[in-house]
């Protein structure tokens, strides 16, 4: 999910690593095989390190950018309790971003570098956050579907081979189930509400369903980077496996709400014991990844603006700390 658009060397990475140090590689892979955790100071192939840096940083960027579509409705939340819940949720997302940048930094990249990559448009973040939040029901849909999809992806990551990432994921997962539940709770209230509210709920599902399925990334056949990630236990399940599981879990939840999934081809396949769903519009997915989704420019502009507008503040804090260190030393 956080590797959408990740370019990877695939077979070339393995060959390059073998040249590095074949004995160390053999021992490294044996540790992975034995479900041991790799920690920051351990030897690791360069491709492992680089893949993780990109995946973890893109995951972190996703959390931070993800604060924007939901933050959009904080001032307009319909009750004081909902406002409190939404602030707490968005605060959690910022916190998740912080845990993840922390985890990535253990691999030898600085936060400043990662932020620069994001703001320069060189790093990716999850495609889903390039969609607009047009109504309050969107906040429900995001909690229910987007966080639901994220949980599906993140639970296996708790068993990722890299210690700091796995630990960050465990912390994130503990907090995430509140996120999905509050989203579904919003949808429940709307589904049981006025005609206008029910219409709002259906409209949100219509707009967020397919982008949520796209969150899991390209289908396995089209995905080139899976092999190495699976071998080194960075990726524990394939995109299609997770996407199928998400559909199977979520369709009954939509049924309970009394709203319709916008997929005419969707039906329960008795023989396969799973839901069959329609074709995803991969053209839309790739356009969004390329920067041509509804909100790509706005999201990046907002992050650049926050970063630029905050520069004098960060510099002031650093200057103050330096002055005080100097005074303390002189005392």
């Amino acid at each position: 999910m956080y590797t959408q658009g990740l370019l990877e060397q695939g077979g070339k990475g393995v060959a390059a690593a073998a040249v590095e140090d074949s004995e160390r590689l053999r021992r490294f892979e044996a540790r992975i095989e034995a479900e041991e955790k790799i920690e920051p100071k351990d030897w690791m192939p360069d491709a492992y390190r680089q893949t993780l840096i990109r995946q973890i940083s893109q995951h972190a960027h996703s959390e931070i950018v993800g604060m924007l579509p939901e933050g959009n409705w904080i001032t307009r939340a319909p009750t004081l309790l909902r406002k409190s819940i939404l602030i707490a949720k968005v605060q959690d997302e910022g916190g998740h971003g912080a845990y993840l940048y922390s985890a990535a930094e253990t691999l030898g990249i600085s936060r400043a570098e990662m932020i620069d990559q994001l703001l320069a448009g060189k790093a990716k973040y999850s495609s889903i956050f390039n969609y607009p939040t047009l109504t309050w029901a969107d906040i429900g849909a995001i909690g229910w579907l987007v966080d639901g999809a994220a949980i599906m992806n993140q639970i296996p990551l708790c068993r990722c081979s890299y210690g700091p990432y796995a630990r960050a994921m465990i912390r994130v997962c503990r907090e995430e189930s509140f996120h999905q539940r509050q989203g579904y709770d919003i949808m429940l209230k709307l589904a049981r509400g006025t005609a206008g509210q029910r219409r709002m709920a259906q409209d949100a599902l219509n707009r967020w369903w397919w982008p949520s399925l796209m969150m899991f990334g390209p289908s396995d056949g089209a995905s080139q980077h899976t092999a190495l990630s699976v071998r080194w236990k960075i990726k524990r399940f394939t995109n299609d496996e997770l996407r199928q599981k998400f559909v199977d879990f979520t369709v009954p939840q939509a049924k309970f709400l009394g709203i319709t999934v916008p997929d005419a081809a969707l039906h329960w396949d008795e023989s396969a014991a799973r839901h069959h769903f329609g074709e995803i519009d991969w053209a839309e997915f790739h356009e969004v990844l390329r920067g041509n989704g509804p909100c790509n420019r706005e999201r990046l502009a907002a992050r650049r603006q926050a970063h630029d507008a905050g520069r004098w503040v960060r510099e002031a804090a650093a200057a103050h700390a330096a002055k005080h260190a100097a005074r303390a030393a002189a005392a």
Binding site: T75, V90, G94, A98, A306, G310, R311
Partner: peptide, 14 residues
């Protein structure tokens, strides 16, 4: 509430 997502650093957002 208007500041969330726009502060000078993530930690200040929090």
């Amino acid at each position: 509430g208007e500041w969330v997502g726009h502060a000078p650093a993530i930690e200040e957002d929090l």
